[in-house]
């Protein structure tokens, strides 16, 4: 069993350390709602950090604290596009500064593994440190790595995902028709453990990431978990036909589209997992107007990119 001991998430909803936030979701996507980073990050580190690093280190530190864990036995991050702000900054300098010397900081901070690397620095953590980057499935791949690691050894793993918005993304998204919902940022980390604790919030039952979007993928996944229908489904909801099909296939189950809540970014399924964990801990909740009774299982279906499916099955801890 894989236990979710804590969950810290920063998004365009009021998600960070707000238990029960699922009752207060806003229909309109606001700006990024961020905490006072100085509470979580050493000021000497913070000055160089872009938003994605600040969000990640704050969430990583908060998740460990909330799980009552001092050190992580592994840090595993997923990111679709990595540290875009620093990448753009350095690339811009490479192109525009002719013959002059270039400031190195943005280059140093541009690599995808800066997120997990900065966490290892901030937490003085010498253990396994990994970064998965498979666009819309990056988070699911990071989670499955964490689960594999818990099969190998007992411990507490800090796993999560982060992606940040920068302005130059907008014309690209417009060109490829990925602008139905606002482009946004989000980051979150979860402490996963093979042992139950007083902090345990939910159970991570199963994860799948696959280069396939066949209908059977979902069916097979539920079957291997001895489940015919989950009590709740959270799905990207990016394409209406997908959503309609899903509601048809699972007519008894409430289906919550999460992209309209958190906006579009590669690892938004981590937002959905954070949301699912919160909902599962509530007796009842209202999401998008409909009342949802207490439920034991929630399935996150991520088909943000055509031809790709990410599935995360969460169970109520008491279930």
């Amino acid at each position: 069993m894989y236990y979710i001991q804590s969950s810290a998430y920063i998004s365009h909803q009021d998600t960070f350390r707000k238990k029960g936030f699922s009752k207060n979701l806003s229909e309109n996507i606001s700006t990024l709602i961020k905490p006072d980073y100085k509470e979580f990050i050493n000021p000497s580190l913070i000055r160089r950090m872009s938003e994605v690093l600040r969000m990640s280190v704050a969430c990583g530190s908060a998740a460990l604290k909330d799980a009552g864990v001092i050190t992580a036995d592994a840090i595993i991050a997923g990111t679709g596009l990595g540290c875009l702000m620093d990448t753009e900054k350095f690339l811009n300098n490479v192109i525009t500064i002719q013959g002059g010397m270039l400031p190195p900081t943005s280059f140093i901070q541009s690599t995808h593994n800066t997120i997990a690397g900065q966490l290892s620095l901030a937490l003085s953590c010498h253990s396994y440190n990994m970064t998965h980057t498979q666009n819309s499935l990056s988070f699911e791949y990071a989670l499955s790595d964490a689960m594999l690691m818990l099969d190998e050894q007992s411990g507490n793993i800090l796993a999560g995902a982060a992606d940040e918005y920068i302005d130059p993304l907008q014309p690209v998204a417009n060109h490829f028709g990925l602008n139905r919902f606002p482009l946004t940022s989000g980051a979150g980390f979860f402490v996963l453990s093979d042992k139950v604790s007083a902090h345990t919030q939910a159970v991570l039952a199963d994860v799948l990431a696959i280069n396939d979007s066949d209908e059977n993928v979902c069916k097979d996944f539920l079957q291997r978990n001895q489940l015919s229908v989950p009590d709740l489904i959270l799905t990207d909801g990016y394409r209406d036909d997908n959503l309609r099909q899903l509601r048809q296939n699972f007519s008894e189950t409430p289906v919550i589209p999460y992209t309209p809540l958190c906006g579009t970014y590669a690892t938004s399924s981590a937002f959905a997992m954070h949301l699912a964990i919160d909902i599962l801990q509530e007796k009842t909740t209202h999401v998008s107007g409909s009342e949802i009774k207490q439920h034991r299982t929630a399935l996150v279906i991520n088909q943000l990119l055509p031809g790709h499916t990410g599935l995360i099955l969460i169970k109520n801890h008491e279930a």
Partner: peptide
Amino acid sequence: SIDALELIV
């Protein structure tokens, strides 16, 4: 040391 490089710039 990163700052040292920035100061060189």
